[in-house]
Design a protein around this nucleic acid. Sequence first.
DNA 1: TGTTGACCTTATAGTCACTATAAGGTGTTA
DNA 2: TAACACCTTATAGTGACTATAAGGTCAACA
Lengths: 132, 132
Amino acid sequence: MRIGQLARKMGVDTQTIRFYEKEGLLPTPDRQKNGYRTYGKKHGEELAFILGCRLLNLSLSEIRQLQVCRKNPHQPCAAINTLLDDHIARVQSQIATLEALQQQLAVLRKQCDDDRAVAECGILAGIGEGPR
Amino acid sequence: MRIGQLARKMGVDTQTIRFYEKEGLLPTPDRQKNGYRTYGKKHGEELAFILGCRLLNLSLSEIRQLQVCRKNPHQPCAAINTLLDDHIARVQSQIATLEALQQQLAVLRKQCDDDRAVAECGILAGIGEGPR
DNA sequence: TGTTGACCTTATAGTCACTATAAGGTGTTA
DNA sequence: TAACACCTTATAGTGACTATAAGGTCAACA
Ligand SMILES: [Zn+2]
Ligand SMILES: [Zn+2]
Ligand SMILES: [Zn+2]
Ligand SMILES: [Zn+2]
């Protein structure tokens, strides 16, 4: 399978596949005589794993760590569990940050009832005052 | 006031101030004979406005739009209100995305009760399957 | 035979809002 | 004279791609 077929099959851009290869996330593929990359089942599975991780917002660095685990199936899985726990904690803190922001923005939005002049817009005035 | 004093007063790095100047967010300051930048009250106020916007996660491009409004105080403020509405909508969609992710991660985390071998870790297995 | 077209290759730059580093000039104090 | 804090510009790095350029490969068609 060439890179374009793999890309269509997995729903990514060919550039993304080459990018993952350069980053060491995908094993270097064999080449045809003309230099074209050739992919097999193994590459497809690894790419599927990477894309599954990316859907979970795992970073490339986190994916690399998980790949090390995958290559050592007889080791304990504690590192995996810890990695996921940390990731979950980070997502939760992002949510908390965004919810606080949403609250601030809602308050700010109420400072203007529309159809004013800029000089009377409570939103612009509210931004200058900082968070309070 | 020189750049270091302004930076300390506003709680940012001097590089950030120079960066905002390069981006056209801060008016170009006067220079002393030795080339040092000199800032006055006007610059401090503009920087405070920018930092207030950044605390609200407004992008530099959004800030530029707000600055145009600020310079035209007799225009209607509709653009400001719309910009904020759009921004609020984006924050809400980010929250929704992260909450869906959090849900997926919680389900995934339950696939492993710890202290297994990597080969038996339900988390690694669950990632490969994708989101359902 | 020539040429279109889809595909492949590498290399480079851009995104966003900074942050870090390097290499050097200025000005006050010890 | 030297140390020190401060200033200057220029350049590169962050993360995960995405876009562009410039060119090579191969099958099909006139
Ligand atoms: Zn993470
Ligand atoms: Zn308004
Ligand atoms: Zn926005
Ligand atoms: Zn586990």
